[in-house]
């Protein structure tokens, strides 16, 4: 038996060359795994939501019939709306209805739950994407400026500004923006609700303030992440290699810094995307924006189990899809990532 040299070891099994490192096959593997995982997660979420709603005090029948209804009337209402009986049975009943698309009627709004949820979802997606489009480029610019000027006056200045901004709660920022732009300058209406279904320009106008408020809330942390990632790439040894190769600064940034700097940021971006698209209760309520977040607040307040369960499930789906999108992005950017179980 001869001793293997390290050239021969190249083809030894165990290291996975060629086909396995292909990006397309890794994306397909991921999709396959998620196709199983996502329904499982949603199933668990649905059970938790269903049971938690049960625990929250409040009686939908009493809410619906008002304070003058007799207990017998309330009881009859509960029975006719399927709110009595063992919880397991009711859960299974709800599950089969939900899966087959028969989502029932909202108690609070007295309209079918599905169009209601989807209508608000569209508004929330619009707001979330708007905020996302403002947030990400701004964070990238600020963070990379900071990294290139690390330790300098610009870096410290931006850090202080962002930290101050992020320590102000979003409802305070929202109110300030309303006072200045809606009340003072009269550029936008104070109430977003009425206009949120108009044409695109009008929607854009009324969505601007809530979107800015949301973007500001997440800006500091994301910019910080970009700064850390970029600073890491700039001090990495492969950066020195690129400089000593004699590459032009633009080539170094494009080929060697950008991708490596963005890998840590992308994971956070994915989480934020899910959060933004799932709807923000605080900002939507503040601006009276007809989104999913505000809808869920009402559903929880008035104890509308139908609306609440359906809304939470949709929020879950959106968040999981955003995470899936992030994971695919990560695979495309970082050849080292593998979503496989087991020790490495």
């Amino acid at each position: 038996m001869s001793v293997l040299s390290d050239q021969a070891a190249a083809l030894a099994p165990g290291r996975r060359p060629g086909l396995w490192s292909g990006r397309r096959s890794r994306v397909l593997t991921l999709l396959g795994r998620r196709l199983i995982q996502i329904p499982v997660v949603l199933f668990v979420v649905s059970i938790l939501t269903f049971w938690l709603i049960e625990l929250v005090p409040g009686d939908p029948g009493r809410n619906a019939l008002g304070q003058y209804a007799t207990p017998a009337q309330v009881r009859a209402w509960d029975v006719s709306n399927g709110l009595t009986g063992p919880i397991t049975g009711r859960y299974l009943h709800w599950l089969s209805d939900f899966v087959s698309g028969n989502w029932g009627t909202s108690f609070v709004y007295q309209v079918p739950s599905r169009p209601l949820v989807f209508g608000h979802l569209v508004n929330t997606l619009f707001l979330g994407l708007f905020a996302f489009v403002l947030l990400v480029p701004l964070a990238l610019v600020l963070g990379s400026i900071q990294a290139y000027r690390e330790g300098g006056r610009t870096d410290r200045g931006i850090t202080i500004a962002l930290m101050s901004l992020s320590s102000v709660p979003e409802f305070v920022i929202g109110v300030l923006l309303l006072v200045v732009f809606a009340v003072g300058l009269n550029l936008v209406p104070v109430e977003s609700g009425a206009f949120a279904t108009g044409d695109f320009a009008q929607r854009l106008q009324v969505t601007t303030l809530p979107a800015v408020t949301l973007a500001v809330a997440y800006l500091a942390v994301l910019a910080r992440m970009v700064r850390t990632g970029t600073a890491g790439a700039l001090t990495a040894q492969f950066h020195r290699t690129a400089v000593l190769k004699g590459l032009r600064p633009a080539q170094i940034v494009r080929r060697h810094v950008a991708r490596n700097a963005l890998i840590p940021t992308l994971q956070l971006v994915g989480i934020y995307l899910g959060t933004l698209l799932g709807g923000s209760a605080v900002v939507e309520t503040l601006f009276n924006y007809p989104g999913l977040g505000a809808l869920l607040v009402v559903a929880a307040e008035r104890k509308d189990p139908v609306l609440l369960t359906d809304g939470v499930m949709i929020t879950g789906v959106i968040a999981l899809l955003a995470l899936l999108l992030t994971d695919i992005g990560l695979i495309l950017m970082d050849p080292r990532i593998r979503f496989e179980a087991g020790e490495s």
Partner: peptide, 19 residues
């Protein structure tokens, strides 16, 4: 730097761009 000299580094794993 591009033409006259080159460097071979101590830790090749870190000297190469991982992506």
């Amino acid at each position: 730097r591009a033409g006259a000299l080159s460097v071979v580094y101590q830790e090749p794993g870190l000297a190469l761009d991982p992506t």
